[in-house]
Write a protein that binds this DNA or RNA. Structure first.
Lengths: 347, 347
DNA sequence: CTGAAAGCGCTAACAC
DNA sequence: GTGTTAGCGCTTTCAG
């Protein structure tokens, strides 16, 4: 019942020659008679012959597959990154196996095990928020399987890393708000590495302009999602002196915040300017459209994949390679009215 | 340089026994002395032994990988479907290789070739808009590799198919608008199979209530994206008698339409009610929140993967299987004010 | 209870 | 120019 794929043996048998000859003919080796070559190629085509990659991989001891581990696939940023990864992997003849952790350390360990078992040639990973230990990744290094960390990285591992310049992204955003006249600029931060960087940028910008860093304006988010944004809006609006601007660190958190502010009967940006690290299309479609820090996801995916491939190649040639550390620039996309000049304050 | 993974041979050598014995010990075969078994298992653990799946696959002639082809991964619906697919694939011990076509037939053929070459055990595919021929898929069938079509399907192939009930989704949406008092209900449709079904639902609902189907209210979209939505809004608003409600067939088209209507200085839903086939979170965050036809992407992914796996299993046991045809129900999510009663007309 | 050997599909070193 | 052989890592008869 099972359709048997055509093998070299089949071709050899039909032509009364050996598999070795067939293999050579198909691979265009020099020492082969034109007639045999011709016959082999024709029959191969006729039978829809396709080399079995599994056999090939067994021999060469590599799989032509790279593994990708991300926290969540239903997420604009990550799916964009994956798109970039697939773009270069495809061109290089690699397939991509994707796993998601749902921000769970346990799940991450499990998926790493699966990929290790699959003998992927390399691993691209964006760490889950929970991940504080790295034994599961060190196993890859022991087997000399290159790893490239992207976006959610850590300092503990000596591998290549690709990140977005969150520090500068936040700095620029806050500076923009300051120059527009906002005075009580809040930040909603998380616990991940990226959040720390953004917080650093936040502090640096305020310091540059001699503005105080007030504890009451620094909010700690947990889930950083839509519902939490709404909750934060209400919390802020009930403060004696609410912030007049907020930098958020996640897509849907910003959207929730906007919705929440409006639910409180307040106006954006007159009562509160909001800047998000956002999916541009969502940010554009909102009322008012949100100013946001654009993160180059596609480019990050491409770069991460390119880096990984270079390391895989070096590996196969037994050449050493140095882990690199690339930081991609963000772009502040200012949308009309979303963080316009705060007239009242300036007058 | 290359870290050599531990093989059965390594264990056998160190223990002075043969690979066969090691293999049996590891697999818990009965006929094995407790001491040997013990020793083997301990050493295996100590050396971090992992069976090489490639060798295993070569032997069993399957890859434990399923292929997924979709038009686009940066897309809420499709990434949700993938999430559902991975959910069940993961639990069943399968890995998932994802390819995107960007709605290009040529790319689809190419990716199908890659997956065929990779000897995936099964294929899940949502066809590109351009696809009118199916030779690339028939090759899978020739090799008895099960295929399950989902979302973007076709009639030409005798495989299992999972779809959303677009007909009923559109019917319910239009009926809702009619019952709210809307009179000039437009539709923006595309060329894909799904659009036809939605158009059928549109017509059926109008007919049920004795309302005419007017050519001027049926719009043909091409790209069905944000920008096109804005353009349609302007076009509609400049009509002598603009529609008072619209059913759109794509996520961002609806969002663009909403933005466009507002840019024309009109109000939603007073001047025009909009219903989209939408990502719920986007629809909620808009002003006003859009009513939308919810499509169960995660469930679709799960069901498609389950179906495929059942067919793979049947295949391996040389059991025949019948292609199934599953249709998932949509859900009309009505959001306050987005398609509220049209008072003016009712009075 | 365990070893020897064949074979999954393919390649490459070595013959002739 | 082409056949022979060995081997990638593993499982599975068949012997003993």
């Amino acid at each position: 019942m099972k359709g048997t794929p055509v093998t070299l043996k089949d071709i050899a048998k039909q032509l009364g020659i050996t598999v070795a000859t067939v293999s050579r003919a198909l691979k265009g080796y020099p020492d082969i008679s034109p007639q045999t070559k011709q016959a082999v190629i024709e029959l191969a085509e006729k039978l829809h012959y396709r080399p079995n990659p599994i056999a090939l991989n067994l021999r060469k001891n590599h799989s032509n597959i790279i593994g990708v581990i991300i926290p969540e696939i239903v997420h604009n940023f990550f799916s964009t990154v994956i798109s970039g990864i697939m773009d270069v992997a495809d061109a290089a003849g690699y397939s991509v196996i994707i796993c998601q952790t749902n921000e769970s350390y346990t799940q991450e360990v499990k998926e790493a095990g699966v990929l290790l078992g699959s003998r992927v040639d390399g691993l691209l990973i964006s760490l889950s928020n929970e991940t504080k230990q790295f034994d599961h990744l060190e196993e890859f290094m022991r087997l000399n399987t290159p790893i490239v960390l992207f976006d959610k990285i850590c300092d503990e591992l000596n591998t290549s890393k690709i990140t977005v310049d969150d520090y500068e992204g936040a700095f620029t955003a806050i500076e923009h708000l300051i120059l527009q006249g906002y005075q009580r600029i809040a930040i909603i931060k998380g616990h991940a590495y990226n959040s720390m960087e953004r917080f650093r940028g936040y502090k640096a910008a305020l310091e540059k302009y001699g503005m105080p860093i007030l504890d009451e304006l620094v909010f700690e988010g947990a889930k950083l999602h839509y519902e939490e944004g709404i909750a934060f809006a209400k919390q802020m609006m009930s403060m004696p002196q609410p912030p007049d601007a907020v930098l958020t660190v996640a897509d849907w958190l910003a959207v929730g915040l906007l919705v929440g502010v409006k639910q409180c009967g307040k106006k954006v940006p007159q009562d509160m300017a909001i800047i998000g690290f956002n999916d541009w299309q969502v940010a554009t479609a909102l009322e008012p459209p949100l100013t946001s820090v654009y993160q180059p996801g596609f480019e990050m995916g491409q770069l991460a994949a390119k880096t990984l491939m270079a390391e895989i190649e070096a590996n196969e040639k037994n050449q050493p390679y140095e882990p690199i550390n690339q930081v991609l620039k963000t772009k502040l996309i200012i949308r009309e009215s979303s963080s316009a000049k705060k007239e009242a304050v300036l007058n």
